[in-house]
Design a protein around this nucleic acid. Structure first.
Length: 944
RNA sequence: ACCGAAAUGGCGGAAUUGGUAGACGCGCUGGACUCAAAAUCCAGUAUGCCUUAAACAUGUGAGGGUUCGAGUCCCUCUUUCGGUACCA
């Protein structure tokens, strides 16, 4: 009887669905275990082989935990709002709701094929009004709360308002990004609009000016991802930074808690470090430098107030609000030119190419508050507006970047710490040329300087965070609408609970917006529901829906609350969260922030959302690129072996469909004549392009038969944009879901990234065929013998049980599969057909290969699903051996093996080992310096 | 540039966490079964020296160090991948 995966898998898929085998109850009597995989964005390319890597891991854990007696929550859903669906709509006219729905159906079907034990009745889809109603509801909560710095929790904004009524800002303890002060009287006299704007400084969801990538030609805001080399990826149009009113979330209020609470999480240290670095807490001082000839002051933050006597210039960000005031008329032209240049540069470029410094002088000066020195104020792109105050004091004597700037523009370099030239940024040394700081070490000087600043009212001690209040607005259609409206005075109001959800209006045709607004500007009735009332036309970003979805799974259909108190209390938080490193910071930081906020409101009982976090590696794809000469007319492609004749920035890499390329992912990857024809058919824009090789330059008609047009191979993300997506479907048809699952796990450690490659899948397929055949006799009859197992069988089985249990708890699935292979090979060697042994092994394998084990389980005559039985536990008694083989090394080099009784005492080992002839041969009578014996492990002889 | 991860045979990887490097699988070579193929089974397979084997030497990205002993720990470097706030 041959293993027929198609038949078996089809059969059990149907039966499981009929019997609701995967249904999860809120059965509060059992201990709970919540295992979650990051939900996917349902892209048009379908589920690719990278997605299931983590899903299979969590599925194995979920099935394992269930067999261990836990009530397991293992849900799945879709992160369904997002840019690609909208882009697709603009290009093809298919409404995002329709394409998204279609994509989700495809994904769900593909997921079911793999045999995950999801309870689909708990599915969460972020774009369904049923769900985003509660995203909007949480947003309103954020809007109507502020952060109390004293109690360190969120509190209702009404509390702050009544404080303002009584005391103004005096001792209000509210977290704010901008320090503002007013009296109760001033507060009461404010107009509704002013009050609204003032409160925006405190609300956890608020509006402020934020910078976006504006593309005039496309009439839209672009994602960083859509910009390449400073121009739009689509069409190559110029892009500039533009300030717009944007919603933002005050995550910075929670910076300290997000930092401190990392301690107790069962996350990898590297992951915690990435989060720590992202939060980037630094301590220092905020200092006000008087501006020469003006009453206003330049506010800066520095971690090194000790170096105040070494300041030789100031640098402000190109977006700094004081630029107009500071720029002298003589400098105006130069400054404007520089600002023009900076507009075209991305933050990434501004930071990464900082070997080449650039900047411009404003013509104005500051006064050093400590010694009255006149200091020139410069503008440079290496200072970012979003970090700190957008202005720095430059100390070229003790900062490498400041120094290279000073050297380029011939500004003075003043040393104020006695130290070696090579470690000018270190905090070792004694202060010099610094008046009252002279003779102090750096730490003392920092404290002394801050005291001096504070007593003279020119600055104060401050913690600064790299973490920013990230932009929460998108000028897009396909996202959650903000549940707010503006009155004729532009005062913001939130909708009431019963008015939620505020649904996205249906647009027949999605087109880009205008005047910097989203496509929602075309929904005129929706946008202006009545006289003097306008809705917010921005929508929420992708991370809105994903910041709390794990809570909704606990009680997904509740229409009264986002999840019931009982469900929240029982499931609490996620015990194990598996997802890709690409979400290491963004998503996890925001989910932690929302969770803490809901915790402050007493809506949930845990302080952190994800107790244990594991990052699965990426399954990478091969990206094949064809080289195009920039700005060539007609478009001229070159064969990759000619690329050395060009500078890197003269060429553009265009990713193409991997299927057109011969020998892909090798140094010989190339397009042949057919490949080039297919390429042109696929990208008709290039039908008039020419192709240059060593043999000459050809157009598409004149291409010679034997052309080898070389491409460039890279390893990278599997993504629709690189045209290298591999779907699991074909693999499953050929080998079955059990093989697919086990093969993905067998590829290597869950955490490692690796390019997709099906070489070797036959090994896993062969294993399952062998496994299946274990249950059949020579006549191909299912035949199992129900007698007491012998010692050898028990040893083989229990060795495997022990290893597999250990491996599962370490999420080391690749080695557990090796152990299954070893076990099956051994059992076949001794021709084992024992019921006791094989039914235990079948249960052991069930979480990995749910279909085949269920089939065998039925054949073995068990009525209950194998997945509802209990998991085997090993007994040490079957594993004991009485002999041990010692490797014997001489000077650390292995020379011999020696098998002796396990209990041979160390003293006997020591004397007897020297008598072994194989050892004698090596010693040749030289004296033994030392004998190292690790009992039961190894012996090492040290000779001179 | 910054933060994080990785590098072991022809390939994916294993190594009890400082103790026999290469488990398990792929591929390859040879053999059995077969008219033949597929499937299956058996044997071999890090490299060098060598007809082969024994024996020996070398060997975990590069270079240094600690140790009786280093793939594993420390320092320096190289390459690749992920993230860097509007891809999700």
């Amino acid at each position: 009887m041959e293993y027929n995966h198609q038949e078996i898998e089809k059969k059990w898929r149907r039966i499981w669905e009929q019997n609701n085998t995967n249904k999860v109850e809120n059965d509060y009597s059992k201990p709970k275990y919540y295992v979650l995989s990051m939900f996917p964005y349902p892209s048009g390319a379908g589920l690719h082989v990278g997605h299931p890597l983590g899903y299979i891991g969590s599925d194995i854990i979920a099935r394992y935990k269930r067999m261990k007696g836990f009530n397991v929550l293992h849900p799945m859903g879709f992160d369904a709002f997002g840019l690609p669906a909208e882009q697709y709509a603009i290009q093809t006219g298919t409404h995002p709701e329709i394409s998204t729905k279609k994509n989700i159906e495809r994904y769900r079907q593909q997921l079911n094929l793999i045999g995950f034990n999801y309870d689909w009745t708990r599915e969460v889809i972020t774009c369904s009004p049923n769900y985003y109603r509660w995203t909007q509801w949480i947003f309103i909560k954020l809007y109507s709360h502020y952060f109390n710095c004293q109690s360190k929790v969120a509190e209702p904004i009404e509390k702050l308002i009544s404080h303002f009524n009584k005391n103004g800002t005096n001792q209000c303890n509210a977290f704010t990004s901008e320090s503002i002060n007013f009296s109760s009287n001033e507060w009461q006299l404010m107009s509704a609009r002013d009050k609204d704007q003032t409160l925006m400084n405190f609300r956890l969801a608020y509006r402020k000016k934020g910078y976006v990538n504006w593309c005039e030609a496309l009439g839209t805001v672009l994602a960083n991802d859509e910009i390449k080399d400073g121009v739009s990826e689509r069409g190559g149009h110029p892009v500039e930074k533009r300030a717009m009113m944007q919603w933002a979330l005050r995550i910075t209020a929670y910076a300290d808690r997000l930092l401190n609470d990392l301690e107790d999480l069962d996350w990898s240290e590297s992951m915690k470090n990435m989060q720590r670095h992202w939060i980037g807490k630094s301590t220092g001082a905020q200092i006000f430098f008087p501006i020469d000839g003006s009453t206003s002051k330049l506010e800066i933050f520095t971690t090194r107030p000790d170096t105040l006597f070494g300041v030789s210039f100031m640098v402000i960000a190109p977006e700094h609000e004081l630029i107009d005031v500071l720029t002298e008329s003589l400098q105006k032209k130069e400054v404007l030119e520089y600002l023009e240049y900076v507009k075209s540069r991305s933050d990434l470029e501004r930071l990464s190419e900082n070997k080449v410094v650039s900047g411009v002088f404003t013509g104005s000066y500051c006064i050093n508050p400590f010694n009255g020195a006149k200091i020139p104020i410069w503008i440079s792109e290496y200072v970012l507006i979003d970090y700190g105050t957008g202005a720095i004091m430059a100390v070229p004597g003790h900062d490498v970047r400041d120094k290279s700037f000073a050297l380029k523009y011939h500004l003075p370099v003043i040393k104020v710490i006695e130290q070696d030239e090579k470690d000018i940024e270190s905090k070792n040394g004694v202060m010099i040329h610094s008046n009252f700081l002279n003779g102090l070490n750096v730490e003392e000087a920092i404290n002394r300087a801050i005291l001096e600043l504070e007593s003279n009212n020119i600055g104060f001690r401050k913690n600064q965070y790299r973490l920013r209040d990230a932009n929460f607005s998108r000028q897009r259609y396909w996202g959650e609408p903000f549940p707010v409206w503006y009155d004729k005075d532009d005062v913001c109001h939130t909708l009431r609970d019963h008015e939620l959800p505020l649904e996205l209006p249906w647009l027949e045709k999605i087109t880009v917006g205008s005047q910097g607004k989203s496509p929602l500007i075309h929904a005129t009735e929706w946008a202006n529901p009545s006289e003097g009332i306008t809705r917010e036309l921005d929508t929420m970003p992708g991370y809105a829906g994903s910041s709390w979805y794990y809570l909704r799974y606990m009680d997904p259909d509740n229409n009264m609350v986002f999840a019931s108190e009982e469900a929240l209390k029982y499931w609490q938080n996620v015990d194990l969260y598996i997802g890709g490193t690409e979400h290491a910071v963004g998503h996890l930081m925001y989910a932690r922030f929302w969770h803490k906020f809901l915790f402050d409101l007493n809506l949930i009982t845990s302080n952190e959302p994800f107790k244990k976090l594991v990052n699965q590696g990426m399954i990478q794809g091969i990206i094949e690129n064809i080289l195009l000469i920039k700005d060539s007319k007609p478009n001229c492609f070159i064969s990759a072996n000619l690329s050395k004749n060009y500078k890197e920035d003269q060429l553009v890499r265009i990713p193409l469909f991997v299927g057109y390329v011969k020998n892909y992912n090798t140094s010989d990857s190339h397009l042949d004549k057919d490949g080039l024809n297919e390429f042109v058919k696929w990208k008709p824009d290039f039908k008039n392009a020419v192709f240059q090789t060593e043999e000459g330059t050809f157009n598409i008609e004149s291409i010679p038969e034997q052309i080898k047009f070389k491409t460039i191979s890279e390893v990278g993300k599997m993504s629709k944009r690189y045209h290298n997506v591999v779907n699991p479907d074909d693999v499953i048809v050929e080998y079955g879901a059990d093989v697919f699952r086990m093969y993905e796990m067998f590829l290597g450690p869950l955490e490692d990234s690796k390019p997709w490659d099906t070489n070797g899948i036959t090994g896993v397929y062969g294993f399952l065929k062998k496994y299946y055949r274990l249950f059949f006799d020579e006549q191909n009859k299912f035949s199992i013998i129900d007698i007491n197992p012998n010692k050898e069988e028990l040893k083989i089985l229990h060795t495997c049980i022990k290893k597999v249990n250990e491996d599962i708890s370490n999420l080391s699935f690749n080695t557990s599969i090796s152990n299954f292979m070893i076990c099956v090979n051994e059992l076949r060697r001794i021709n084992c057909r024992n019921l006791n042994i094989l039914s235990s092994l079948n249960k052991l394998l069930a979480p990995f290969a749910p279909f085949i084990t269920e089939e065998i389980n039925e054949k073995l005559g068990f009525a209950e699903s194998v997945h509802h039985q209990s998991y085997p536990i090993h007994s040490e008694e079957y594993l004991v051996t009485d002999e041990v083989t010692y490797p014997i090394s001489i000077n650390g080099k292995r020379r011999h093996e020696w098998t002796v009784s396990k209990n041979k005492p160390q003293s006997e080992l020591e004397t007897e080992v020297l008598l072994l002839p194989e050892i004698q041969k090596w010693l040749k009578g030289s004296p033994i310096k030392k004998i190292i014996i690790v009992q039961g492990r190894m012996i090492n002889l040290v000779v001179s």
